[in-house]
């Protein structure tokens, strides 16, 4: 039997909340699928649309951007900017024909280790049936 497809998810996690949330999931010994490649960024507001496009063109099957809940941003309003900018990115990607599941955004606070681990479970479950992302991937 062929091995089941395992999606690779690139996750841009804000240093103050989501990355800490992922850490919490780790130190609390919660289990979640190893499909995620976390990249710590200073703020979800610092995630340029370029990062998302670049992850997809380098072959990510899914991209997640996660930051603090509205009102909790370490830099006061970075996540509000992110929300607006990435909403446009999401609309654009879907308009071009990328499956909506492949680009996701979430709010995960430093205390939400459970939410983080559940989120990854869910993402992997949603991405598996889609198979590998080949639309934006480089061919060489």
């Amino acid at each position: 039997m062929a091995a089941e497809f395992e999606p690779r998810i690139v996750a841009f996690l804000c240093k103050w909340c989501s990355s800490a949330g992922a850490d919490l999931a780790g130190v609390s010994r919660m289990e979640y699928p190893p499909n995620v490649i976390p990249i710590q960024v200073m703020c979800s507001g610092s995630v340029s649309p370029l990062y998302v496009f670049s992850a997809l063109s380098h072959g990510a099957d899914g991209v997640l951007v996660s930051g603090c809940h509205p009102g909790d941003c370490h830099y006061i309003k970075g996540n509000y900017y992110a929300r607006r900018r990435l909403a446009l990115v999401k609309k654009l990607l879907e308009y071009i024909g990328l499956e909506p599941q492949r680009f996701q955004m979430s709010w995960v606070s430093a205390t939400e280790g459970v939410k983080f681990s559940q989120l990854i479970y869910d993402l992997v479950k949603e991405l598996k049936p889609l198979g590998p992302q080949t639309k934006f991937r480089r061919n060489y």
Partner: peptide, 24 residues
């Protein structure tokens, strides 16, 4: 180097996506 110079589909898409989002 975000976009390579080759005119393959992946790079063309990248360029046009960046332009579209930058013009939003």
């Amino acid at each position: 180097r975000w976009v390579e110079r080759n005119p393959e589909l992946s790079e063309n898409i990248f360029y046009h996506l960046v332009r579209a989002i930058h013009l939003a």
